[in-house]
Design a protein around this nucleic acid. Structure first.
Lengths: 185, 185
DNA sequence: CATCTAATGTCAGAGACTGTCATCACCTAG
DNA sequence: CTAGGTGATGACAGTCTCTGACATTAGATG
């Protein structure tokens, strides 16, 4: 258990979210976050590789869920359908924390350097999805293209899910965006 | 005309490319680049908003070419075809500087923080493409999805164009990737 | 009680950027 | 030909991000 106050990482994440919302990302120093969490700046950088990373703690979990769902998709699924099953699973993890996602999303939207980091995480998600498709026996370039398409759908569906306030499930937005994508060709 | 030695910006870009190739991005300081270019560090940051930006000078040009080509695409083109015409135009600008593109690409591939910046530029390209499609009367979400798809094709085609050494035109790689993308649905 | 270990604290320092003011090189008006 | 005017650069101080090295602490273990 915690030898000092428990859950230092969680405290820092919450402190960062508060401070970024109050004053903005650039106006908040790493030392500010650490102080509010009751630790030193040095401890902050032991838990997070850089100041931005404090907002992207759960991305590894999303990636893992995506990978598992793609591998576990029904045997007859097309590459695109399997990849879409992956992003639906990722969306499911966000479902019960929508207000947190909204707050976080606003902060990111207000800062280009945070958008960069988000794009990097989405790129990692794309690579993971492509690997999962390889696991299913999908070759190149189909795997990479299907992964890109699915993550694009995730991206668009996420934006709609955040913007809409109608309580529609994430999976519904995914289905709609996927339908629109197929209609392009 | 130049009051001091002319083309300070060009000198810094070339110096940066050399130094990043010689020692790596992180091992090169902004002061190193400035010194090789014959200016001070302060002057470097007057020309480039940050150290990474020195590698992304031409991206605005690519964006402009993409926008223009999409708007100028044949009247009957589908949204996806128009968007693809845009990325083919962007690729055309790279065509006669392939070795430069290869060197730059290697440096970016070796550094995550540069990949972030590249993803941000591709995202900007996506937004530009979507705007150009709006100009053609394409609505949402079709415009955004077609833009994403086209930029994905650009991304994949670029990687193949860099990797392949067979002198195939950029447009050929775009056509192949686009064909594979359509085959998904 | 002695020891070991994981997490934290303390301190010093390099490097990325920014603000401010002086300076310089060329251009133009008179 | 000389007196500004202008835009780019130099000089310098300072903040913030991030890292390395070493000491300290609280709890687990024997």
């Amino acid at each position: 258990m915690g030898r000092w106050e428990p859950d230092a990482q969680g405290r820092m994440i919450r402190a960062a979210l508060e401070l970024f919302a109050e004053r903005g990302f650039e106006e908040t120093t790493a030392g500010d976050i650490a102080a509010r969490a009751g630790v030193t700046e040095r401890t902050f950088f032991r838990h997070f590789t850089d100041k931005r990373e404090v907002l992207f703690d759960g991305s590894a979990t999303l990636q893992g869920a995506t990978y598992d769902a793609i591998v576990a998709a029904p045997a007859g699924s097309s590459p695109l359908d399997a990849a879409l099953a992956g992003v639906v699973a990722a969306g499911g993890l966000l479902e019960d924390r929508r207000d947190h996602a909204v707050r976080r999303s606003k902060i990111i939207a207000a800062n280009p350097s945070l958008q960069e980091r988000e794009l990097l995480k989405l790129a990692a998600m794309t690579e993971t999805a492509a690997e999962a498709l390889h696991e299913r026996g999908v070759g190149e370039p189909a795997a990479t293209l299907a992964a890109h398409s699915a993550v694009t759908v995730f991206h668009v569906a996420f934006a709609q899910w955040i913007a809409a306030d109608d309580g529609a499930a994430f999976a519904t937005h995914v289905a709609e965006s996927a339908e629109a994508l197929r209609a392009l060709s």
